[in-house]
């Protein structure tokens, strides 16, 4: 799901768009080089200053072990991006391979992949991810795989359809006539031409994947403590709702700002590369 910028805002200078790119750049910076932004190590405890509100020393306050919330939010960027984008990339790669295989392989294989996709689509929303985590157990990698699994069916469908279109196109027919091997045709022509629409679709699912990742962490199924994952930090902060509001506000704000930025930037990329706004739904 994504939101489209308004029709009128699609031309000219758009401060909101620039803001979104800026936020995303900051998040990526925090993910790649957190110590540049953070003021404290994320797991350094300070037993003298537990559960304090924002102050100049601790911009977002501290948690129950006196850890600096701002620094933990900064270090958390990496986990949100790793899980959200990791799951999306996983779904994209696996989806592209299965989709192309389905479109070009034997009919039986196409049928098998198609029905398997039907079955995966029968687990609504997060449920497939939850089932996968239940089997694999909690953890960052397992959460990534789980969300990847629940995102993959859409990519398979799209890739299959795209591969069918490409196969019927002139240059592929030409390659067949020229006597190129099927493997070469698929590697050189079908796959590369099926991928761009998948990338567009990935900009649509990335935001959802980030939210799903932090939701799994919130439920205690993400990376293990003391990893500063945003959803997990929010879950910990719930115990102090009437004493320390900051613990329940900043990690959530981080998720929302990141996902808004990803969605806005995604819509902008779609507009640039497709020439028309993709249907986000």
């Amino acid at each position: 799901m994504t939101a489209e910028p308004t029709a009128r805002a699609r031309s000219g200078f758009r401060p909101a768009l620039w803001l979104a790119y800026l936020v995303l750049a900051l998040v990526v910076l925090a993910a790649v080089w957190p110590s540049l932004v953070a003021t404290h190590p994320p797991d350094a405890i300070d037993l003298g200053a537990p559960v304090a509100g924002p102050s100049p020393a601790h911009l977002f306050g501290t948690d129950v072990l006196g850890r600096d919330t701002f620094s933990r939010v900064v270090h958390g960027a990496r986990w949100s991006l790793v899980i959200g984008l990791g799951a999306t990339s996983l779904a994209l790669v696996v989806g592209a391979l299965l989709g192309v295989l389905s479109a070009s392989g034997p009919r039986l294989l196409d049928e098998a992949i198609g029905r398997a996709t039907d079955i995966l689509l029968a687990f609504p929303g997060l449920l497939l991810a939850l089932l996968v985590v239940a089997v694999l157990g909690p953890g960052a990698l397992n959460a990534t795989i789980a969300i990847g699994c629940s995102t993959v069916p859409g990519f398979v469908r799209l890739a299959r359809g795209q591969a069918l279109v490409v196969r019927e196109s002139g240059y592929v027919r030409a390659a067949v006539v020229l006597g190129h091997s099927p493997a070469r045709i698929h590697a050189r022509h079908v796959l590369p031409n099926a991928v761009p629409p998948l990338l567009v679709f990935a900009t649509v699912t990335a935001g959802t994947a980030i939210i799903s990742g932090s939701a799994l962490s919130f439920l205690g199924l993400g990376p293990k403590a003391p990893t500063p994952e945003w959803g997990a930090m929010l879950a910990d902060g719930r115990d102090f709702l009437d004493t320390a509001w900051a613990l329940a506000v900043f990690p959530g704000l981080a998720v929302t700002a990141t996902v808004v930025a990803v969605n806005v930037v995604g819509a902008d990329l779609r507009r640039r590369f497709e020439g028309s706004p993709a249907d986000g739904n």
Binding site: D43, I45, V64, L65, P138, G220, K224, A225, P226
Partner: peptide, 24 residues
């Protein structure tokens, strides 16, 4: 769970790595 993270940070100070792992 919270206390263990504190123990983990304290042990790190003297050079001990504590793997506190949730399992089923």
């Amino acid at each position: 769970v919270t206390t263990a993270q504190g123990v983990q940070a304290e042990l790190k100070k003297v050079g001990i790595q504590l793997d506190y792992t949730g399992v089923d």
